[in-house]
Amino acid sequence: MREEEIPYKGIEGIPIIREPGNAAKVNRGSWRLVRPVHHRDKCTRCKICYIYCPDAAINWTPDGPEINLTSCKGCMICAEECPTGAMTEEKEGA
């Protein structure tokens, strides 16, 4: 592009991100080798899985944890820390 043809984009042309939290739509699910599976019957709603998720991939609802598989990278901290075995592990693609 010739120099004089480069459009000036104003503040659109400045490297800032103006949409807070828009990474939520980015799919990190493809990173997973294993996925967490929640068993409501064993859950005591202790919130441990929710608190310890590094990717905010577990939402807290009135019914307990809700796993967001778009954000979940499969670290399995939730299953490791769950005191009642309500979070288990399942192989991806199994």
């Binding site: 120099e3 480069i6 459009p7 000036y8 984009k9 042309g13 490297p15 991100i17």
Partner: peptide, 16 residues
Amino acid sequence: PPVLDEYSIFKAQNHV
């Protein structure tokens, strides 16, 4: 933020 392919676009904006 870090950028990937947009680097030259932003540099061009600095130039313009």
